[in-house]
Computed example of a mutant assay.
Amino acid sequence: MTCEELKRIPLISILEYLEIPCARMNSREAWFRNPFKSGNEKTASTKVDIQRNIWYSHSEGLGGNNIDFLLKFLETDNLSRVLDWAGERKNILSFHQQTVWDKAPAMRLDNEPAYTIISIKPLGNRALTDYLSDVRKIDLEIAEAYCQEIYYRTAKGQGFFAVCFRNDAGGYELRYSYDKRSLLTKGITTIDNDNKDVVLFESFMDLLSFMTLKKNAGKAYLDANYCVLNTTANLQKAFPFFQRHNGITSYLDNDASGKKSYQILLGQFEKNAHRKKWNQATTGTGQTDQGCQ
């Protein structure tokens, strides 16, 4: 791994990999308990500026970029050791880079009730395509078919851009390395490929990962209809769409919310459903593949 590659990894993904407790986080900053003492302190003293990807530890009185952090954490002055350490964990850190945002609540900046959408256009921004292909390992042809890039400004005049995914209610789900939020109206997203079976996901990144895995394996990925909840709170909004199908395959997250939603789904369609044992899903989000047929 090169210095520039290491600097591009979000520091919060490194901290999550190291299992350092995060006390609080919004789309601008995250606060962690002292990572150099294994997170053993009562009050979080280490701040990570998410947008600039730099840190400062008030308890240690020092800060810097990812390289500075790992030099301190690994207790070394040897840059090669730091790069080797990061290189050996490159794939793991990429995985944590995904999950740290997938598990965070949709966020907005403090005291900013409104946004102004400046433009929405086809994917082309190199920063966003690199994020999708290099970080999230998404096939760009698939991403371009279902996503766009959005430019927007907050009420405080701060400008941002991100990958966006439209829902059926006219709102947008946004993802980038420093951002996860929704704009306008929350809703489900349905994709109708004129099929009798539907595959269910919680987030659009799960959908894109699933399609990418299918394509890489030489398998068809347009042989089913799809539904993305965009939040498990939208589950009941998807029931009318589900009722048009003969079978439902669920790739909801293997966490409390995902399991609860699956049980609700099973109860709603139990007359035509029976339990099956499924293999662990491989969408890169730690999910379990559950099915209703």
Rank of each mutant, 00 (worst) to 15 (best):
E4D: 14
E4K: 13
L6W: 10
L6M: 13
R8F: 01
S13W: 08
E16V: 09
Y17G: 05
I20E: 04
A23K: 07
N26R: 02
N26A: 00
A30V: 02
A30M: 00
W31C: 04
F32I: 06
N34V: 01
T43G: 01
Q51R: 11
Q51G: 01
N53H: 00
N53S: 00
W55L: 03
E60A: 03
G64E: 07
N65C: 03
V82K: 03
V82R: 04
D84V: 10
D84N: 08
K90F: 15
N91R: 06
I92W: 12
L93T: 09
L93R: 10
F95T: 14
Q98H: 15
A104N: 02
M107K: 08
M107N: 07
L109F: 13
L109W: 09
D110K: 09
E112D: 11
Y115M: 14
P122F: 04
L123G: 03
G124A: 07
N125I: 04
A127D: 15
A127S: 15
T129M: 11
T129L: 05
K137E: 03
I138G: 14
E144F: 04
A145V: 01
C147F: 11
I150V: 14
R153N: 06
Q158S: 13
A162C: 12
C164V: 02
R166V: 02
L174G: 02
L174N: 00
R175Q: 00
Y176D: 09
G187C: 08
V198R: 08
V198I: 12
V199W: 10
L200A: 15
L200D: 08
L207G: 02
K214G: 01
A217L: 10
G218V: 02
K219Q: 15
L222C: 08
A224V: 12
N225D: 15
C227F: 06
N234H: 13
G247F: 04
L252T: 01
D253I: 02
D253E: 01
N254A: 05
D255N: 08
Y262V: 05
F269Y: 05
K276L: 13
K276A: 12
T283G: 11
D289V: 13
D289G: 03
G291I: 11
G291K: 14
